[in-house]
């Protein structure tokens, strides 16, 4: 019962029957080798083979813009609001599962963020295994996210003519029951799964010159590295890297007054440390004035600060920041440059 099997020929039916039960979102091809999570009605809409989407599924847990407060000035009222939607997300890669786990830690850290936590509980997550690297930008092995590590209700792994599905929660189990398309896995499926994993252990190697466990130590010594000067010269502060990151969670708070000049809302909107005004204070002082300092901050927020606060890396290895960078700043190259510059000093 822990492992079920879905025939590939039943995949379209599976998505269609899911879509009759609940809103389903899944990766959809957008052309030019880009993808995004969107609502789907049928399995044919789903890009089962896809590279990380433009935005991670974070957008469903922590939307780009979210009303937190609604007010009515003349009535003197102000109420806290929760916007949510029940849905099933199909096809979440292990990197993005890790991203959601990171956000879970941040928003359940005290004081808790009720909006996030309630919304999260309305979403069922179906993971999907990458049997091989999606492209040259991925670095999931170096942060150990190439293999599933929880954070899902169901987890799909593609075998020859079927998917083997790990059932992780009762919510996942309910979907198996309701859709009636699954059969319990047999030994042959389990053997095939083991073969996939074995092959993955061979394919996925540390993508950088430093081991997973030594990354935090590398960053301990890298604050004053010349590498940041190089990024300072190259970065244009377009903000793409932070906006596409599955574990970035910075935001701004904005008030909006309706045209009656009486009612309105307080909304939080994604913000990013790469944006010029991000660390400015009222007097005009900017505590991270240079693009290099802001890039350094981004890297440290992935490899050092969260290790101290949450005991894990906040880089998920998805490679989105590298893929989207206008200046072609590469996460792997930056880490390797930090390793090299450390050695030069010796």
């Amino acid at each position: 019962m822990q492992y079920q099997v879905l025939k590939k020929s039943s995949f379209n039916d599976f998505i269609a029957s899911l879509a009759r039960i609940e809103k389903v979102v899944a990766p959809v091809a957008r052309g030019y080798n880009t993808f995004s999570f969107q609502e789907v009605k049928d399995g044919q809409d789903v890009a089962v083979k896809y590279i990380p989407t433009i935005l991670p599924p974070k957008k469903y847990f922590f939307p780009q813009r979210e009303k937190l407060i609604e007010f009515n000035k003349s009535a003197g009222t102000l109420e806290a609001l929760l916007e949510y939607e029940k849905m099933v997300i199909f096809g979440v890669h292990t990197c993005d599962l890790a991203g959601i786990q990171c956000l879970n830690m941040v928003f359940s850290d005290k004081p808790k963020d009720i909006n996030y936590l309630v919304r999260k509980n309305k979403i069922i997550i179906i993971g999907l295994e990458c049997n091989e690297y999606c492209d040259q930008y991925a670095s999931c092995k170096v942060v150990d996210n190439h293999l599933p590590n929880g954070g899902y209700d169901l987890f799909f792994t593609e075998l020859t003519d079927s998917f083997i599905v790990h059932v992780n929660t009762i919510y996942g189990d309910e979907l198996i029951d309701k859709t009636r398309l699954f059969n319990p896995a047999e030994q042959i499926h389990l053997d095939q799964l083991e073969a996939v994993r074995q092959k993955k252990r061979e394919i996925f190697k540390d993508e950088v010159k430093v081991n997973h466990n030594d990354l935090a130590k590398l960053f301990d010594k890298s604050f004053d590295s010349k590498v940041w000067d190089d990024l300072d010269a190259r970065c244009i502060a377009c903000g793409n890297c932070t906006n596409v990151c599955p574990s970035c969670y910075c935001f701004d708070m904005l008030d909006n007054l309706n045209l009656d000049l009486n009612t309105g809302d307080r909304t939080r909107m994604w913000d990013g440390c790469q944006n010029e005004p991000f660390a400015k204070v009222a007097g005009g002082e900017n505590f991270r004035k240079t693009r290099g300092a802001r890039q350094r901050h981004r890297y440290f927020r992935k490899f050092k600060y969260p290790v101290e606060r949450y005991s894990r890396y906040f880089c998920t290895g998805c490679g989105r920041c590298t893929r989207t960078c206008m200046a072609k700043i590469s996460l792997k190259e930056t880490i390797n440059a930090l390793v090299d510059s450390k050695e030069e000093k010796k």
Binding site: Y32, T34, S36, I54, L55, I236, G239, N243, V244, M326
Partner: peptide, 27 residues
């Protein structure tokens, strides 16, 4: 005082540069 790219990403558009087209969003 930040680039059009910021809002463009929030809207999850396919980047013009991915399409091979030059766009002034970044500046």
């Amino acid at each position: 005082d930040y680039a059009v790219c910021v809002e463009c990403k929030l809207n999850e558009n396919v980047c013009m540069y991915d399409k091979g087209i030059t766009c002034l969003g970044p500046v």
